[in-house]
């Protein structure tokens, strides 16, 4: 094995997404921002669209895992509690820099942080709502957003008193398990998000909340942090976590972090195409999507309508 300038281990290609997100930090000139609807409540969707594209590109997911629906569901839920949020979209915001910070690229993170802080201050945001656990931790702890309240969307919906209307009589009882994200749970020294998503799920009248074998601060990780690696060991962690969900007989495994959704969805997809694999018969989805599906009405943002997502996997040697 030849020694290159990066060393032997450096040459495994990492996801294109890292490169895309890193390259956002190169140009930090502030563009001209025209926000059509200004509000002191701002919703930041994060990188969910990038996950969708990455998953499609990596041939890991075809139509199973929908990250973009988190955006749609969050807007629907926020409108249901009477908030018309301003959207901090990715045409002028940058990635929060969580991955860059935790991979040690501190300079890249600091450039992103300074840029985002300037934009948030400029737009006069008072309440910063995010649907991503990593974004919640990063904006709350690693940014210096004085005077801006950073909340996870489940916290905000809980304190605003989201009401889920009674489900139709024909709806059958479902068992719902919740995966505590590391970043907004045990790695969040102040204001961890444990109770709010559970309380919200309990408001769905045909849903029964079941706890996994490990939960709250002891909750096992979904297996991968920041999409940094995927190997047999991380897949083992993911599989053991999903085994816990099937052990308690869950119909839904809810997550509050888009990356947990990615990794669970990836394993779910991998096993789905194996004949005779019946272990993971439950659905994996984000908690916002689960709640928004229980609300009447359509998604105000439209949905993630990409025809490619519905296609079956291409025939290939890895099939």
């Amino acid at each position: 094995m030849m020694e290159t300038e990066y060393g032997p281990g450096r040459t495994i290609p990492h996801p294109v997404m890292f490169r895309v997100l890193d390259s956002e930090a190169e140009d930090t000139t502030i563009p001209e921002i025209r926000v059509e609807h200004k509000s002191e409540f701002a919703y930041y969707p994060g990188c969910i669209d990038y996950y969708d594209v990455e998953m499609q590109f990596s041939h890991m997911n075809y139509g199973d895992t929908n990250h973009g629906i988190i955006f749609d569901s969050s807007i629907k839920l926020l409108r249901a509690v009477g908030i018309q949020p301003m959207i901090l979209d990715r045409s002028f915001m940058k990635c929060c820099g969580h991955d860059q910070l935790w991979q040690g690229k501190v300079d890249v993170f600091e450039r992103m942080r300074d840029y985002n802080t300037k934009i948030i201050k400029m737009l006069g945001v008072k309440t910063f709502i995010t649907s991503c656990a990593e974004g919640y931790r990063t904006f709350k702890l690693d940014y210096k957003l004085d005077g801006v309240r950073v909340v996870h969307i489940t916290q905000f919906l809980y304190e605003r008193g989201l009401r889920i209307p009674p489900q139709p009589e024909t709806a059958k009882k479902i068992r719902v398990a919740f995966q505590d994200p590391c970043r907004s749970g045990r790695q969040m020294p102040l204001d961890p998000v444990y109770e709010e998503p559970r309380e919200l799920v309990k408001r769905v009248d045909n849903a029964e909340l079941v706890e996994l074998k490990t939960f709250r601060a002891d909750a096992q990780c979904c297996g991968v942090a920041q999409m940094m690696y995927c190997n047999d060991k991380t897949k083992g962690l993911t599989a053991s976590r999903m085994d816990e969900a099937s052990d308690v007989g869950a119909d839904y495994l809810l997550v509050a972090c888009p990356k947990c959704l990615t990794h669970f969805g990836c394993l779910h997809h991998e096993n789905k195409w194996k004949p005779g694999e019946e272990r993971y018969a439950f659905k994996v989805m984000d908690v916002t999507q689960f709640l928004a599906e229980r609300l009447p009405g359509d998604y105000p943002t439209g949905s993630n309508i990409d025809a490619k997502r519905k296609e079956p996997p291409l025939p290939g040697r890895r099939g």
């Binding site: 490169r19 969707p45 594209v53 749609d72 979209d89 990715r90 105000p300 439209g302 990409d306």
Partner: peptide, 29 residues
């Protein structure tokens, strides 16, 4: 509702933006 139109536009624009940036990143890589 203009608000709904705003949300829809932002949503679709973000999706297109992600795809475009991703394509660019893959090319460079």
């Amino acid at each position: 509702d203009p608000l709904v139109a705003y949300y829809q536009r932002v949503r679709q624009m973000n999706l297109a933006l992600a795809k475009e940036r991703y394509k660019q990143g893959f090319k460079v890589r």
